[in-house]
Design a protein around this nucleic acid. Sequence first.
DNA 1: GCCGTTTTCGGCCCGACTGTTTTCAGTCG
Length: 577
Amino acid sequence: MTDPSNAAIADLFDELGDLYELDGAVVHRVLAYRNAAKSVREAPRSVAAMTREGKVTELPGIGRTLEEKIEALLDTGTIPAVEKLRARIPAGLVEMTRLPGLGPKRARKLYDELGIDSLESLRAAAEAGKLRDVRGFGQKFEESVLAAFAAGAGDAPRPRVLLSKALDIGEGIVAALRAHPASDRVELAGSARRLTDSVKDLDIIATASDPPALLAAFAGLEVIESASSPGENAARGATHNGVAIDLRVVEPDQFGNLLQHFTGSARHNMALREASVRKGLHVSEYGILDDADGKTRRCEREEEVYALLGLPWIPPELREDRGELALRDGDVPALVEQGDLKGDLHMHTVLSDGRGTAEDMALRAREMGLEYIAITDHSASHGFGDHVSADELRAQIVAIRELDERLEGIRVLIGTETNIGTTGRPDYDDDLLAELDWVVGSIHTSFSMDVGSMTDRMVAAIEHPLIDVIGHPTGRKIEKRAPYAIDMDRVIEAAARTGTMIEINSAPDRRDLNDVNARAASQAGVPIVINSDAHGPETMVHTRWGVATARRAWLTKGDIANTLPWEEFAPLRKRAR
DNA sequence: GCCGTTTTCGGCCCGACTGTTTTCAGTCG
């Protein structure tokens, strides 16, 4: 039996939280399970392995009881509490709580009183007019249930929006509002400001000389399909392509408090407030209440909020309750910036599935201020009809050398993105790989291998002396495709041992490695490379998204190998050592 | 169920809104 993945264990803890909540457990116990689920999901190592080593309680939120539950899972393949609760609580109750206004308490009540145990039976009861007779419910609730079903509740929840698309919309709206004469300060908040992989909606905070005028201007923007006013100083809108946007206009002296509050994350804010209460300070979106004098202090700037709590300003990308509240003045990492990158070592041309020539790519790179690039077209067995034979690659070596001679101000290197076969072998001969400057090894096929075989395959590739870097190491597509099963502990260990670099692929739907794994890899001493994986000159700017992930991984310029000039980067390649 | 510069018990963020209630519990972000 293979070990359960961290994701599988986390899912079970989340399910236990849901089931205990429906069972009427105290809210803190439910929260403890959800905390534990988050902690397991983000653990940098295999939680199963940590459990066997007796180290799992080192993870925040995992105590003796949850350790026992993981042990039972490893020994028997199941957790007794899960089985017991599943037998008692119908799975449909969890789905019912997805309806707006229906939480665990009331869903449970409907089950106890009317035997409603699914979305279908809830709908039938609402249509039959039975809900209004339950004490605590009424006609309005019944109507809202029917309205929710009419609006498509119960269908698959709307997918989250990719950050690249969300920022495109959000930054456009912010720019338009800033240009309006009634506006003063306008900032994007929420998860978009934290540069998460995807976002549910957008939050914008503003101050204005004439708030109603700014709210009206927002509602009248071209991109806004519909807007409503939930309050005097707020607007809620949706774009034509279905992205929800909240705009809040506040007094200038509270702007810092609101921006901090709406930037989140919820967990960061919760942890921040808990720590503050111990100092007699109560943080809310309106200010900081000091027990000592009973006064609430308002903050114009976000820096003041953190300063009043005895903390340095924390970059939004770090606000995930991953240790950032322990930072003190002077040890906040100076996060890497896109302008720090000097090279881009993964991109495609018309030779495989790209849209530009090598020269197109080089000229664009030079415009962007890069000092060197590697052309890394797909290899011989790519399988999508655009593969590059060994002979074609040999011809490309000559062509790229000639291009590099001819072009001033940019160094053009020749590489490949070679496929890692199921045994971990690259699909060109070693003598050809040895002629190249740089080799990216990536997995593009056979995603469904079991975790042991997939990890063996990857480790074999990492141990190959001519594979310099592993490209998009988990194969995930954000909101579309889960990462393939792979033991990241072993991958990181092998990379650190062999001096193989690991890529943060910047394609906006990849960002692979993700923030958590990139942080773990870097802490283990693996050199990280941020690459665009551009398939045309216009997508070379995608490194913005890879940099965003690196920042969320707490990485500095010094942690990213391709911030070095080529003369210093070249000796770090495995082939040069 | 976790956790500790209030440490092995008694705490565990903050505020708004809603609908159903006679003063508030549940839900949501």
